[in-house]
């Protein structure tokens, strides 16, 4: 293929994947709200409610507060939504090849995940409101809190893959291509479950959901970071949250549940890709239900210092225990191999 052809196909894929990310992300939010409502004995809004909300926000007036920094205030939401979409381009969706999958690995994804959060911090500081300022500080503290456990998960998985002799262990395609559960022994499975728990707990913080939503805390900060945002800018932040929900689900699926339907049942190529995509979405919904919906309706909000303690002490320890178990498993596996 020529260079122009490659670039052209990448651009086409990018547009398609972005559109898919926006639509699927908004539907995910709708499913989340519906399930949460049913758990609270309510009927809840229809599944397309996030779309209605976005349409409503887009026709509303876009207010920039008097003491805000306009260029930063207005560009933050755009950066947030664009960077969330970019992450999606690196993550495998079912058996579809991700458009940029071969150009970046899990480390890059980890760094990219911080950009929407940083955009929100910048937007919050640029709002010029005490609530948004407090929210922005809290977002930074939360970010520092959850990055460490997340890094443990990523390193643990990649290191175990490398130990098993997988080439390019940080590439998401190789992680997805070699389901980790098949590689490890019984000790490693316990370690993996611990790492899975850590990733599940990092997810609500990445998406600023209860119990880790101190930066937006409705009853304390009246929306925190987003307090001054309205109209189109708020719509963009909502879109960014929607895409990030899909990204976090897809990341968990790619690392821990990468199996595809087509590898179990023989299907013609075209059907297989559609079936895999639907299966992938079902897995994402399941992951989101457990990590986001159930957690956010079943717990009270933490205080910001409790957030840090929970991540740095409790879940960092759980993550390290998982990592140690994986290492022990690898050592045992090698020993067994030698014997």
């Amino acid at each position: 293929m020529t260079l122009a052809g490659t670039i052209g196909s990448i651009i086409l894929w990018t547009v398609l994947v972005s559109l898919f990310g926006l639509v699927a992300g908004l539907f995910l939010l709708g499913i989340d709200r519906k399930l949460a409502a049913h758990m609270q004995a309510r009927i809840g809004p229809p599944l397309r409610q996030p779309f209605i909300d976005i349409r409503k926000l887009l026709v509303k007036e876009n207010i920039v507060p008097e003491n805000a920094i306009p260029w930063l205030f207005n560009s933050a939401p755009v950066i947030a939504v664009v960077s969330s979409l970019v992450i999606l381009l690196y993550i495998p969706l079912g058996s579809l090849i991700s458009p940029l999958g071969m150009y970046g690995d899990l480390i890059l994804v980890m760094y990219l995940l911080t950009i929407p959060a940083l955009a929100m911090v910048a937007g919050g500081f640029a709002s010029g409101s005490p609530y948004a300022t407090v929210g922005a500080q809290r977002e930074m503290v939360t970010m520092i809190g959850y990055e460490f456990p997340l890094a443990i998960v990523v390193i643990g998985i990649a290191w175990r893959l490398w130990a098993a002799g997988v080439a390019h262990p940080f590439l998401l395609s190789s992680i997805a291509g070699n389901p980790i559960w098949g590689i490890v022994g019984p000790l490693g499975i316990i370690g993996l479950i611990l790492l899975l728990i850590v990733l599940a707990v990092v997810t609500p913080a990445e998406l600023s959901r209860i119990p880790f939503d101190t930066q937006e805390a409705e009853t304390e900060l009246a929306g925190g970071l987003l307090v001054e945002y309205s109209g189109r800018n708020l719509a963009l932040f909502s879109l960014s949250t929607a895409v990030k929900t899909l990204v976090m689900g897809a990341l968990a699926v790619a690392i821990f549940f990468p199996w595809n339907l087509s590898s179990f049942v023989a299907m013609p190529a075209g059907v297989a890709q559609v079936a895999d995509l639907l299966f992938f979405l079902a897995k994402v919904v399941l992951v989101m239900f457990i990590t986001v919906t159930l957690v956010r309706v079943g717990m009270a909000r933490f205080r910001i210092n409790q957030v840090v303690t929970v991540y740095w002490v409790h879940f960092a320890l759980i993550g390290l225990a998982g990592l140690l178990l994986l290492m022990a498993d690898s050592a045992l596996g090698t020993a067994a191999g030698v014997l």
Binding site: H38, M39, Q40, A41, R42, L294
Partner: peptide
């Protein structure tokens, strides 16, 4: 909550 998920809304 999980029990309520399978019960009709109030």
């Amino acid at each position: 909550l999980l029990k309520q998920l399978f019960r009709p809304p109030a």
